[in-house]
Amino acid sequence: MAAVKTHVRTTLNGEATEYLCEPNQSLLEVLRDVLFLTGTKEGCNDGNCGACTVNMDGRIVDSCLVLGVEAEGSDILTIEGVATPEGLHPIQQAFLENAALQCGICTPGFIVASKALLEKEPNPSEARVRHWLAGNLCRCTGYDKIVKAVVDAANTMGGKK
């Protein structure tokens, strides 16, 4: 019952990217199963865990709640676009140094979400970090070390307290 596929043009991690998808495929599904960018994770597929967080036109969104066809013309950043050939992003480094991941499945979503926060607000308080990241569930860490990593990364990135 395959429907006619739609040709979608986006900018993905800074590069012009085109794909074909059906209207019932989510952006998450397109990223993972069409483009094989599996760094964006599926946790619940209904917008309640944040594991599939990507940055779309400057806003973080749950990619499970965006249709692939809706991404036409969008500029999308996934976890695969966060590090550069020069090295890890300071947030990624801070997650490692603070042991802010255990199983690591929620980590890409947390990093993409944290990056959007720190780009907007270089000096977030602990309370602000917790508020911003409340849409991202982690079941391993109790969040303690994630909060520390994000605050740590903010300091590294130059936003002094």
Binding site: G47, G50, I60, D62, L65, G135
Partner: peptide, 9 residues
């Protein structure tokens, strides 16, 4: 409503 991700859409 929801979290930051939901409010973005």
């Amino acid at each position: 409503i929801g979290g930051i991700q939901i409010q973005g859409r």
